[in-house]
Design a protein around this nucleic acid. Structure first.
Lengths: 148, 148
DNA sequence: TTTAATGCAAAAGATTTGCAACATG
DNA sequence: CATGTTGCAAATCTTTTGCATTAAA
């Protein structure tokens, strides 16, 4: 389930290029933390990344992992799954619906779409398991944030 | 942006029915916490719900809000946006892709689909703001969890 | 009256921050 | 060598838990 080496190498050099462009130092820790995410196929969280990097860099600290992760996210080198630095939000609307989320302020609005509710999913998906619901999240910059 | 009253009332009576069926006590706190989510149009988090309920029930405590929220979630009376009781996960795959997520164990697998990448979104969406990316999350029970 | 639910306070967990020591460019 | 980065420890913030008290059925 790991990413293949040629792809990992491609990601590593992109990472190094972006860091140089931004004037960020290419430390041993940063390289190894990024490499870990670049080759992982399972979307690890900060703690898991920390444990894995520690096998190769025993002195790395958890706070460096966090700092690096957010730095990579700000540079657009990694993405986060689910909410970004946000708490769990609750919703009592049980009808099938989807969300528009502002990438900057987190504003979230419901929308419905019969078309989306009936999209055909790739057959390969069923090899992962069965399917209950399909939820579409549309991200963008909301009007309010665009004005500033 | 609040939910209209008739719909709130419908949700309230559904909530009461389910609680009775499950033998759960209909306390003042539970009613007001549920009402708050039922009428909110903005997907509040636990802290926000707590602050709003406190205006009407000044003695309510934050831990009761948390306990009630998870109870409602377990009963299927509310849903959570984003990850459920999970930490932020990271991903270095920047290509457009979607996720299959197991509702039980959180297993997450990437998948790609040209069809999904080209779905037509409702025009009304553009009234919220501009659109960067569309991400589809398919939820279900993975094979591993289904076997148990 | 019986039992479950609440509020409090304390614990646990996750993430962030200040700062001196250190490594990179 | 100058500056940005690290590791440590402590702080902060969010969520959970134990337990005596209270309220629903």
């Amino acid at each position: 389930m790991k990413t293949e080496m040629p792809e990992v190498d491609r990601r590593m050099s992109h990472f190094e290029t972006v860091c140089r462009e931004e004037g960020l130092k290419l430390t041993h820790q940063r390289r190894e933390i990024f490499r870990e995410i670049a080759q992982a196929g399972d979307h690890p969280d900060a703690e898991v990344i920390y444990q894995r990097v520690r096998e190769r860099v025993p002195t790395v600290s958890l706070d460096t992992v966090y700092r690096t992760l957010w730095m990579l996210n700000d540079l657009g080198l990694v993405k986060t799954l689910g909410s970004v630095r946000e708490r769990t939000r609750f919703d009592a609307n049980l009808e099938s619906h989807h969300h528009y989320v502002c990438r900057k302020c987190g504003l979230t609005r419901d929308f419905v779409s019969d078309e989306l509710d009936n999209i055909e999913l790739p057959a390969s998906l069923y090899s992962f398991g069965d399917i209950d619901v399909t939820h579409v999240e549309v991200r963008g910059l909301c009007r309010e944030c665009a004005r500033k």
